[in-house]
């Protein structure tokens, strides 16, 4: 009996220590967010005091009012949604078709094309941004939505992901059965593959959406006018203008972080799953 309680209390102590360490870690992880949020509600005078106080003495919404008066953040937000939305849809469609073809068909040149895809997956986007940019200049696509969105229309990784998924979930027998029922190849794609790819399609969608949302160097190069800025560039330029007005800057940061946090809270499981899925196979 006494031995059991001893074991029990040892385990208990260990558990408490574990949680304590994890809680301290968690606090460190969230401090930047908390500091950002509370600063956003401080009047400017309160920002420049020492020692700094975490909570504002006289909380104010003024920073947010000023924010929207100084820069069209709603427009930035809409641009980000538009860019990420179109990018996500395009990547989903391309990956579905590409993944399907590469997993279920054999055709001459398949290996070559697949190798090409792998190469484009390895070389980082930023390293070939220069010729892409000169092309856009030549086409007159600078400062246009089509120019900003173009590089985000494809993602070779999406093809790999869906290729793997389709390969493991859809059997050749199922496809043959459909063919016997008179289903065309394209019909197989829309009637069988599409409905069965929801889960990995969702994971890929989340991944593609965030990828385009945090786009930085490309829109920085392409967007010349305020009305073309996405959230990231809009906030960057905003910080240039108000470089030391930290309460205002934090209000801007809060505005750009909140939508992502909301999405994360709602889709937390799917997002984490999508990351672990994307990590499973390189």
């Amino acid at each position: 009996m006494s031995k059991m309680t001893k074991d029990h209390s040892l385990g208990f102590l260990q558990r408490v220590l574990k949680h304590l360490a994890l809680i301290i870690g968690s606090i460190i992880m969230v401090i930047p967010f908390v500091w950002m949020f509370t600063t956003a509600f401080k009047p400017e005078v309160e920002v420049l005091i020492w020692p700094p106080k975490l909570l504002p003495k006289a909380p104010t919404y003024q920073n947010f009012i000023d924010l929207f008066r100084q820069a069209p953040f709603f427009r930035y937000f809409m641009n980000s949604v538009l860019i990420s939305g179109i990018s996500t849809i395009s990547i989903l469609m391309i990956s579905l078709v590409g993944g399907f073809i590469f997993s279920k068909y054999r055709f001459p040149g398949k290996n070559f094309l697949f190798t090409v895809l792998i190469v484009t997956a390895i070389v980082p986007f930023e390293s070939y941004v220069i010729p892409l940019y000169t092309t856009m200049v030549k086409w007159g696509w600078i400062n246009t939505y089509r120019g900003i969105i173009a590089p985000y229309l494809v993602m070779s990784f999406g093809i790999f992901l869906l290729r793997q998924h389709i390969g493991s979930t859809i059997s050749d027998e199922l496809m043959d059965a459909a063919r016997i029922d008179g289903c065309s190849e394209f019909g197989i794609l829309t009637r069988i593959v599409l409905p069965l790819s929801k889960s990995s399609g969702g994971a890929l969608g989340i991944f593609a959406f965030t990828q385009a949302w945090i786009a930085f160097m490309w829109p920085l190069l392409l967007a010349n006018k305020k009305e073309m800025f996405n959230m990231e560039i809009g906030l960057t330029m905003f910080q240039y203008r108000f470089s030391t007005n930290y309460s205002l800057l934090m209000a801007g940061s809060v505005i750009s972080v909140v939508p992502m946090i909301i999405i994360f809270v709602v889709l937390r499981r799917q997002i984490i799953e999508s990351i672990s899925l994307t990590g499973l196979k390189g």
């Binding site: 994890l22 870690g25 968690s26 992880m29 969230v30 401090i31 930047p32 967010f33 500091w35 950002m36 600063t39 920002v47 420049l48 005091i49 020492w50 700094p52 975490l54 965030t210 949302w213 945090i214 930085f216 959230m231 990231e232 560039i233 906030l235 960057t236 910080q239 930290y246 800057l249 934090m250 801007g252 940061s253 809060v254 750009s256 972080v257 992502m260 946090i261 999405i263 994360f264 937390r268 997002i271 984490i272 990351i275």
Partner: peptide, 30 residues
């Protein structure tokens, strides 16, 4: 815990860089 530790990964970089700049402020930073 997993969600908390994961949170910074999904937040966009620009606002967090601005926030960290403020954290690192030599005179008034936390």
């Amino acid at each position: 815990y997993q969600a908390i530790y994961f949170l910074p990964f999904i937040t966009p970089l620009v606002p967090m860089s601005v926030a960290w700049k403020w954290i690192y402020d030599p005179m008034y930073g936390i």
